[in-house]
Amino acid sequence: MSAAQPGAAPTARSMEFQPVQGGQETTSAEALLVAAYLVMWVLVFGFLAMSWRRQGRLEARVGDLERTIDGGKAPRP
C-alpha cells in the first residue's frame, strides 16, 4: 500500500485506497464485517422500533379521544 502523497493532484489521490500515516491494521476483516452488518440491522430495526412506539403513543391518544367523544355524547343527568 502506498502512503498518500501530499503533493499529488486531488483526483489522482482519490482513485485508490490509501493507508493513513501511522495507522495500524490489526483487526480481523471477519470481525469488522460482522460488526458492520450487525450495526446496520440494529440501526434499521431500532428505527422501526421507534416508529412502532410512536404508533403506540398515537393509538393511545386515539383511545383517549374516543373515550372523550363517547363521554361527551352520553346523555346528561
Binding site: F17, V20, G22, E25, A29, L32, A35
Partner: peptide, 9 residues
C-alpha cells in the same frame, strides 16, 4: 469499520 481494515484507523 471498513476504514479500520483499509486505512488502519
Amino acid at each position: 469499520l471498513w476504514a479500520k481494515k483499509a486505512w488502519g484507523v
